[in-house]
Structures are given as structure tokens and as C-alpha cells.
Measured scan of single mutants.
Amino acid sequence: EKTLKIVADSEEEAEALAKELAEKYNLEVTIERNPEEEGKYVITIKIKP
């Protein structure tokens, strides 16, 4: 299993990107607040072998 993390500037941007990735590529995608940067969100994508 591989994990890729993407940082987005807004929750709306994160949700839109996560939804597109999940639907288009059938990936497991989660969104959470970035504890290191206020106002940023981390999109985590898990790629199963």
C-alpha cells in the first residue's frame, strides 16, 4: 500500500479534489485539517497494490 498526501488551501478545494480522485480513479481518499499550517487541509490518498 502506498500513501500520497496533498495539501489544499481550503476545505472546498480539498473536497472537490478528493471527490474527483475517488470517483475517477477509485481510490480511498480522506481529508483532515493540517496541524502544521492553519487554514490548510491534507488530502490523503491510499493506493492499494
Rank of each mutant, 00 (worst) to 15 (best):
E1A: 08
E1F: 01
E1G: 11
K2I: 15
K2W: 01
K2P: 10
T3N: 08
T3R: 06
T3C: 13
T3M: 12
T3Q: 08
L4S: 05
L4V: 14
L4Y: 11
K5L: 12
K5S: 10
K5V: 14
K5F: 13
I6A: 02
V7H: 14
A8E: 01
A8P: 00
D9V: 03
D9Y: 13
D9Q: 11
D9P: 03
S10A: 01
S10C: 03
S10M: 01
E12C: 13
E12V: 09
E12A: 11
E13D: 06
E13S: 07
A14Y: 01
A14I: 02
A14S: 02
A14W: 02
A14Q: 00
A14R: 00
E15A: 15
E15C: 11
E15W: 15
A16N: 09
L17K: 06
L17H: 02
A18G: 04
K19Q: 08
K19C: 05
K19M: 07
E20K: 14
E20I: 14
E20C: 14
E20Q: 12
L21W: 06
L21V: 03
L21P: 00
L21T: 01
L21Y: 11
A22V: 13
A22W: 13
A22P: 00
E23R: 14
E23H: 07
E23F: 06
K24S: 04
K24A: 09
K24M: 07
Y25D: 04
Y25F: 10
N26R: 06
N26E: 05
N26P: 03
N26I: 02
L27K: 04
L27E: 06
E28R: 02
V29T: 04
V29S: 03
V29R: 00
V29N: 00
T30S: 12
T30H: 09
I31R: 01
I31M: 04
I31G: 00
I31W: 13
E32Q: 10
E32V: 08
E32D: 11
R33I: 11
N34V: 12
N34E: 08
N34G: 10
N34R: 07
P35F: 12
P35V: 09
P35Y: 12
P35H: 09
E36P: 03
E36A: 11
E36S: 12
E37P: 05
E38W: 04
E38R: 03
E38P: 13
E38S: 05
G39F: 05
G39Y: 05
K40H: 09
K40Y: 05
K40I: 07
Y41S: 02
Y41F: 14
V42L: 11
V42N: 04
I43L: 10
T44V: 14
T44P: 00
T44F: 05
T44A: 03
I45D: 00
I45Y: 01
K46R: 09
K46E: 06
K46F: 10
I47C: 11
I47T: 09
I47Y: 14
K48G: 14
K48M: 12
P49Q: 13
